[in-house]
């Protein structure tokens, strides 16, 4: 156990150093980078990926994966627009229903993984297609605009000088840190990732824990959809496509083992910030958005390679 903590500290230590180096490199490249306005704006842009990365940390710690988060985001965004504009519901009710739909989508993932024992990779790859397909079918390529001003506060407004959604993100992250670190539920999550069969034989509620985690992943993806729609004040069916890649990269970069059993929410947060400043710094120095996805892909591979290397040293 102490050896494991040591590795975690080491991984996060390396990550922290890397973060500082990148921060300085970016700051020396461009004057606009290290300003409060820019950093707060980057934090705002990071929120949707960040929100989903919290439950994704739990999912990956159990040894699973959830590829459908981007599709759930798209589906919930579309449903929000449909409930509000096409069905004429009040916006708060539409938000509530959209969150419920996302939770149900996550619950369905959990059921497929636990009851039918489909490997999470394939289960969520299938629902990735299904949920995105539903979003496309329901929206028929129509976008919804014209949301009321009060709704934009969530995605574009400030509260006490800090972007509104950042408070929400801080809350979700705090809950994530607390649950994974200090509760029985968190310990069960690690136990499942280390050895699922052993966890089951020790009488731990494996099925219920996994079901809850996938459901939470769906709920938070829906929450991210609400924030996203509020920020860009429009809904389209392709919203959030490919976001799963950024989320998984942040989690793995943060030191969570893709094989399960190891990882912390704090690490995910550092990984997230590192990725965001890397993207921001690159785009400030003239690399376009598509170029930065190349960097994210490369960073993901390097992150897993380093993590594999570290775990090999520790096992010797």
């Amino acid at each position: 156990m102490t050896a494991m903590t040591r590795i975690l500290i080491r991984h996060e230590f390396i990550l922290g150093i890397l973060f500082v180096i990148v921060l300085f490199a970016m700051a020396s490249q461009n004057d606009r980078f290290l300003t409060t306005a820019n950093l707060l704006n980057q934090a705002r842009l990071m929120t949707e990926v960040g929100l989903i990365a919290i439950p994704m940390t739990f999912v990956i710690v159990t040894g699973g994966i959830d590829l459908s988060v981007g599709s759930i985001l798209g589906l919930c965004a579309i449903l929000l627009g449909v409930f509000w504009q096409n069905l004429g519901l009040p916006l708060p009710a539409a938000i509530g229903l959209s969150l419920a739909a996302g939770t149900a989508a996550g619950f369905a993932n959990g059921l497929i993984v636990t009851r039918f024992r489909v490997p999470p990779l394939i289960a969520t790859l299938a629902t990735l297609a299904l949920y995105r397909g539903l979003a496309e079918g329901i929206s028929q390529a129509r976008s919804v605009r014209g949301y009321p001003d009060w709704f934009a506060v969530l995605g574009r407004g400030d509260f006490l000088g800090i972007p509104t959604q950042l408070w929400l993100f801080a809350l979700v992250a705090a809950v994530g840190i607390f649950v994974l670190r200090f509760t029985t539920f968190g310990r069960t999550t690690y136990a499942i990732g280390n050895n699922e069969a052993a966890a089951e034989f020790s009488g731990l509620p494996v099925v219920r824990t996994k079901l809850l985690i996938y459901t939470a992943s769906g709920f938070i993806s829906a929450l991210a959809a609400i924030v996203f729609v509020s920020r860009v004040s429009t809904t389209r069916s392709d919203m959030g496509s490919g976001i799963e890649l950024e989320v998984i990269t942040a989690v793995v970069l943060g030191g969570t083992s893709i094989f399960g059993g190891r990882g912390m929410v704090i690490g995910t947060l550092i990984g997230l910030c590192l990725m965001q400043i890397l993207q921001n710094g690159l785009s400030l120095s003239g690399v376009r958005g598509d170029g930065t996805t190349v960097v994210i892909g490369a960073v993901l591979i390097v992150a897993v390679l380093i993590s594999n290397l570290l775990s090999r040293f520790s096992s010797d």
Binding site: L245, T249, T293, V294, G297, I301, N308
Partner: peptide, 18 residues
């Protein structure tokens, strides 16, 4: 290098399409 195929190819997807 023991990178799981889903991670390696997700990264390739990002690199190739970007």
């Amino acid at each position: 290098a023991r990178v799981p195929s889903i991670i390696a190819t997700l990264a390739m997807l990002s690199i190739l399409s970007g």
